[in-house]
Write a protein that binds this DNA or RNA. Structure first.
Lengths: 238, 238
DNA sequence: GCTTGATCCTCACGCGACGTGAGGGAGCAC
DNA sequence: GTGCTCCCTCACGTCGCGTGAGGATCAAGC
């Protein structure tokens, strides 16, 4: 079998077969007197093996070593771990990027420096999250990001309403405040889904980053205390 | 500010700053008489901007164009799509790789040719799945692969038991067969989770690939008919 | 035996974002 | 003057090929 023939049969290009020979992964066992490559049955089988292993994303030299050593379990397990870490990195990148794109859709055509500030901010938030939640939890939160964003959009209005009542001196037991406290709980619930661990970590994170949270449009301590009193009253009455 | 200073301040290397100048993304606005680079405030800000954009995974030339044009929304949206497709490809690769590694853990040290056959087989199964399920469905199935594998491990035993009863001529209404049919339903349920669409597609896939499924250790038509009769009887009685 | 079209050969550059020297000036303290 | 640190400009290596460039070989028809 000559290169062109083999290339057509395998769907590879001639250049690829040349390259594989250069790298030593598939060296045709013979040449014609004029120097044309001749692949015998063993060579052809080897090409198919390399094709299969390449589909697993292995680098060429690893494939060569693998076909020589035969230690598939070790190498593939290590490779899987590496793919996992690449996947984690890419997922994280996608999260950041999606957050930025989301915010870009809101206001049209912001100044470059604003965009950069946004990116930094998103990154800081991500880093903060990473401190309080395990990678798995972060991944899970990412997956539900779409719903989460929809719910998160309700916070500003809710906080504004609560501040208004608080400023007006409305008693926490007032039905209007009770209603707001109820919505507050619903939003919290949409985040932690009843998992006490997530809830706990979220509270810790807010406590230890109170200023940043308030600056980012989150609730301030006074509002939280107000809601807590409203819930206390609600519980006493219920 | 000179290069080394700026490099320390930003955590970049001197070579990186040189490279960015080569590519035209950050060109220091001045040089000393002896040719040393001098970065002014604007240059430094620009470096930080490039750092931020690079964290989003953008290529250098795109960053240069972006800082010149300011069309963030368009470029970042396009980039997000590209990241998504990379993510999809990597997820699929991870699925294949994980499936192969899983099978490698069962038998110790198989021959190279067996491993390659395994890879081909896994790929064929993946391709078949891709024909019947949408990428989203495949991704969702991948996510639950761990549980799925555990459940899948029960199929061979269940099928063997059913074949034994069938061979012994046990009536489908027999309590033992009813029990097996019950387990059968539970396993099916663990796959499609009550979603009729998934269930439907799974059935179509089995129907149209009956031989491959049977060859891969799946149920053959006779066994399926036997279970169907058992369930018919069960329904009639219930 | 000659031409022709397809196939083959061997360099060798290009991509992306730098790392890593090599060889040699510049700046500053002693 | 001497030594140390920082700076400069090439320029090659990475990974898996794509894409020519320029030339030899092959099979076939005339």
């Amino acid at each position: 079998m000559k290169v062109g023939e083999l290339a057509r049969a395998t769907g590879l290009t001639v250049r690829t077969l040349h390259h594989w020979e250069e790298r030593g992964v598939v060296v045709p066992s013979a040449r014609t007197s004029s120097g044309h490559r001749v692949y015998d049955d063993g060579d052809v089988r080897r090409v198919y093996q390399v094709v299969a292993l390449r589909e697993l994303g292995l680098p060429l030299d690893a494939i060569g070593a693998l076909l020589a050593s035969g230690s598939f379990a070790t190498v593939l397990t290590a490779h899987l771990e590496q793919v996992d870490s690449r996947l984690a990195a890419l997922r994280s990148l996608r999260g950041t990027l999606a957050a930025v794109v989301d915010r870009l859709r809101d206001g049209p055509e912001p100044a470059p420096s604003d965009v950069l500030k946004m990116i930094d901010e998103v990154n800081r938030v991500n880093d903060t999250f990473a401190q309080y939640f395990t990678p798995e939890q972060v991944a899970a939160l990412q997956e539900r990001r779409a719903e989460g964003e929809a719910a998160a959009a309700e916070w500003p209005g809710l906080i504004a309403s609560l501040r208004a009542e608080m400023g007006a001196g409305t008693d926490p037991s007032d039905p209007r405040v009770q209603e707001l406290a109820h919505r507050w709980n619903a939003l919290l619930e949409s985040f932690h889904r009843g998992e006490p661990e997530l809830r706990e970590q979220l509270f810790r994170m807010r406590d230890e980053n109170a200023d940043e949270v308030a600056a980012a449009g989150g609730p301030d301590q006074a509002t939280i205390d107000y809601v807590a009193r409203a819930q206390q009253v609600g519980t006493d009455e219920g």
